[in-house]
Nucleic acid binder design. Structure first.
Lengths: 355, 355
DNA sequence: GTAAAAAATGTAAACGATTACAAGAACATC
DNA sequence: GATGTTCTTGTAATCGTTTACATTTTTTAC
């Protein structure tokens, strides 16, 4: 309601001077600066964001596009992004519930001119190309399949994490290890599956994989576990492609009267905060989710600053094994290092932890 | 990069016509509409958000100010807000980490002209006035103390929920009931404490309150529980002012070798998703957190639409008791209704549930 | 005190859209 | 064919800033 003109009139100067005062330009006399500042404060003036970014073509805002803000994973990602953005003086323009390509396009269009760059959670395998963006528009993809596309991509070491976890289960003597898979066509899910298969293959058990479908949520984990328990020979260990499904599986096992880990070992992926409070505490592949958001934000900020002189890069965030009770891990003292966990275990940085 | 002018030139019309086509105005000939539409699509034109909202003075964006995006509570609130906003064609401009008044002011200023209204999480008791907002600017306060101030305020039935939970513990025979309090000066914490005291008083136990400090996080709950266990006579039941502290307390009790609920009953507040997966499952006062966000968004949208013709209102979201194992509740079959849970239990809508 | 240099301020043109108003085109009526 | 309607389109002002450039004021040097 109070514009720069009002301030200018009240202070007896031109709008240019007010603008300069507000932007800390050094070519304005100290006395005028004080007078203008005082008037501005008295009138409660704040510069109009839209007007400002129209002329400067900077918005101090990062856009975030999510399939859906649901579950601990996404909220942690946002937290990481927001904290980083905030530290650099940026806001977040969030838009969720974009499940198909056209919804993403719509959201992209409506964010045009309101953001300096975009972080898109794009976990779909098949459609790698985010469409219709003006070439050179700063963009970071999260959880996208790494391809030769000219984008900045941040992913998690899904393959390595899954591989290491399954190797650990193998090293504990398990031979019938089942996986509850993630969403079909999801990049993370695909990589985790690949890690599972790879680990089994490296132990010469490639043909004895036991794979059941899941959808990354608790109820599908519950159902999947029941499917597994109905088999004539039940698996001795279950690796769920994320913690939510592991939680569902845990319920199913409990209901079936089976002890974890004595009767069936269980492990998850993500290491959400809840994992350590379950009974038994859930072994999981730890992902520093908020760091994922932080990396994405930093990458995007770099792209925004450099603009044309910015080269695209694919970053992979390391994962860590977190061994708790649910997988029947050895006692802390005899805990193998990542290297020593068995011939099949590949290194996952930075280190294996026991919590 | 592509502006309305480019489209106009390429289509051989004036910018006005392009604008009309884009806004679905009906006073443009069908053939021109098609031609312009086609050119716009071919050029990949999207209207510039800042320019648009400068002239229309609408942004299709709601601002959200949070003290910090941390924990399940906040992310659930955001989810509720975002889903509602999205359903009405609005985006969310989020800004977090505003712990003191001046940080909030800064954030408010930098959002000016980028949002149509604001939702502010303002849980501080002492500073009731959100400062420096142009009078009549649409604003909804979340979790603020309800006062006679001319704001829209959405709160949770903290008092009623705490009152009911403590009454329930009383009805189970507990007489030494302790509370782990929330953050000093926080409105929610204060109301929950008031409910605790009220329930004890109504049972004639006003003088035997056992109150220890807490900070709404797990570690403070852990410490608080240890303080309680160090007393010569230890409480038979602990009511934590939120679930995070209850989780911390649970760890402490477990470490002390005490069984829950046999040795000490435990209850929390919020009913975060994790609560039902704890061992024992945690009894809690259920708050529909995302509904809280939804209500706030709806309220704000109403204020934005009506602008001047909008009257302020204070809304309180009901809470529900959720009785699980941790408080040693009676068996499901004999579960008392809200009304029947004892003479001291006041009604909390809509119903008491057993999960 | 005057001229030149330096500092402070003002003027006005952007930025990219929307929209009241004016004007032109098409069509019907007589 | 002139006139009046009705459609369609164009012209130009506007939103609230920033900033290049012009202009005024102050300072400095003589």
């Amino acid at each position: 309601m109070i514009t720069i003109k009002d301030v200018a009139r009240a202070a007896g100067v031109s709008v240019a001077t007010v603008s300069r005062v507000h932007n800390g330009s050094d070519l304005v006399k100290e006395t005028t600066r004080r007078r203008v500042d005082e008037v501005a404060r008295r009138l409660g003036y704040s510069p109009h964001g839209a007007a400002r970014s129209l002329i400067t073509s900077r918005t101090s805002t990062l856009g975030v596009l999510l399939p859906d803000i649901y579950g601990e994973f996404f909220s942690e990602v946002i937290r990481g992004i927001d904290q980083t953005a905030h530290r650099h003086g940026y806001h977040l323009l969030v838009s969720s519930s974009h499940d198909d390509r056209s919804a993403v396009e719509t959201a992209l269009r409506s964010m045009w001119g309101r953001v300096d760059g975009l972080i898109v959670l794009w976990p779909d395998l098949d459609e790698t190309a985010v469409p219709n963006l003006p070439a050179g528009f700063p963009l970071v993809l999260l959880s996208a399949p790494i391809g030769p596309n000219g984008f900045d991509v941040i992913t998690v070491a899904n393959f390595e994490g899954a591989y290491a976890m399954v190797c650990h289960l193998l090293s504990l003597g398990h031979r019938r290890i089942a996986i509850i898979k993630g969403i079909e066509g999801n990049a993370d899910a695909a990589e985790r599956l690949r890690g599972y298969r790879g680990a089994l293959a490296s132990a010469g058990l490639g043909s004895s994989a036991i794979e059941v479908a899941g959808e990354f949520n608790e109820s599908s984990g519950f159902r999947a576990a029941n499917v597994l328990l109905a088999r004539e020979v039940r698996p001795s260990a279950i690796f769920a492609a994320n913690d939510a499904m592991a939680i569902g599986a845990l319920s199913a096992l409990r209901e079936a009267g089976l002890r974890v880990p004595e009767d069936v070992a269980l492990a998850g992926f993500d290491d959400i905060p809840m994992a350590r409070y379950l009974d038994p505490a859930l072994s999981s592949v730890h992902v520093d989710i908020s760091a994922l958001g932080e990396r994405a934000a930093l990458r995007l900020l770099a792209a925004v600053r450099d603009k044309d002189k910015h080269e695209h890069r694919a970053e992979t965030l390391p994962t860590t094994l977190v061994l708790r009770r649910s997988c029947g891990a050895a006692a802390p003292s005899s805990l193998p290092t990542a290297q020593g966990a068995g011939p099949a275990t590949i290194t996952i940085s930075p280190l294996m932890r026991r919590i």
